[in-house]
Computed example of a mutant assay.
Amino acid sequence: MKRRSLLTAASAATVMTLGGVGYAVHRRGRNPYYRGPTSDHFDGVRFFAPGQVVDKAQVVDKAQVADKTQAADKSLGDVVRWKAERGGTAWPKRYPSPFTADRPPERVLDLRVVLIGHASYLVQVAGRNILIDPVFAARASPVRFAGPKRVNPPGIAMADLPPIDAVLITHNHYDHLDGPSLARIWQAHQPLVVAPLGNDAILRGYDETMHVETRDWGSSVDLGDGVSVHLTPAYHWSARGLNDRRMALWCAFVITSPEGVHYHVGDTGFGDGAIFRDVRTRFGAPRLATLPIGAYEPRWFMQAQHMNPADAVAALDLLGARQALGHHWGTFKLTDEGIEAPAEALDAAMDQAGQPRARFLALRPGQVWES
């Protein structure tokens, strides 16, 4: 395993302590992770989502002129303002799940989903076992002494994982890409690892033998047994430190199988809703959508890259998904809302939409969903 300098690691931990947002240090330079042709979402150095405002200078809406808050890239001044204004709700040191740690079956022919914690899932479908953004670390951080600390244990112990066929990584933030855990999973299971462009360089920094298939938005990977995974856009960003912002791609995933369509988003802003409409147009209404519902306050700072529960309910409506499960809450404190606020706000948003609460569940670690 390659070692980073303590200074670089501590800087990255500081970024995560600031809610996984950080501030932009725009140096043209070279991209240390990826070299490839320019496209409608890559300028030769940095990735971006078409239609997503990344630079505050792009904001022209008169309603935003005074503040220009909707850009994904934040300045150091924005971070200082957030810290100065921060009146967030404190979290308890422990928030144990009411569900006992799951011991999954070795294989499932239909569809079984369990939340490991935060944004980490085990998806068992059509005989394939798939991990999404597996984070088993005590902190969402590159170091053990700083960064957001988990307040409940993983909903599956790593030793209790069934044979893992594939690992899907949505993006490289430390609450989604846990390098040491991935190295252990690789050594134990030798899964196919699928990630967006540029993330292979990061992953192989933890184990140079790891086999990583990187793809661009719009591309697909066959996982076997009639199961495929498709990379689709998200309104988010990436960084492992202070100087590599948006130099590795991020994505959402669509898993297609004989058991239907499963749409998974690690992190995204709602934007204009086009990314959700496009998924429904291309793949049809999903059987299941797993959507983030946390890390959204304050809105002026988080809105461009993190949905709140009302946004997630609006996304569910555009997708037409039969069932939704909510994640990205209740394990790592990244932003200002209280620990139970996302689940409470989700219920309120479903009530407001005239939808049964059971159609969109805020999962807790170890909680299993089976259709």
Results as ranks from 00 to 15, higher is better:
G271I: 05
M247Q: 12
S11E: 08
M350E: 06
P98E: 13
L168F: 04
R128W: 03
P286H: 02
R287A: 14
K68E: 08
E259W: 07
G20T: 02
L7E: 03
I202G: 12
P96D: 10
G320C: 04
R139D: 10
P286F: 10
A71H: 12
A321K: 02
A201S: 14
S181I: 03
W82L: 10
V108T: 09
G266Q: 05
V254K: 04
G29K: 03
M210L: 15
V113D: 11
A304K: 06
H262T: 00
A343H: 09
T214H: 12
A119H: 00
Q70L: 09
P32K: 09
L318Q: 04
Y95L: 13
P309C: 02
L334S: 03
Y23L: 01
T281N: 01
T17L: 13
Q323H: 04
G241F: 02
A138F: 07
V151I: 15
I293M: 04
D207Q: 14
P148C: 09
P154Q: 10
G224E: 14
D222W: 14
D110L: 10
A183S: 14
D317T: 15
R246A: 03
L177F: 01
T170F: 06
L18G: 13
W329P: 15
L122H: 02
A66M: 12
V227N: 09
V113H: 10
A90Y: 14
A324P: 06
R204Q: 15
P134N: 04
G20A: 10
A126K: 09
P50L: 00
H41V: 02
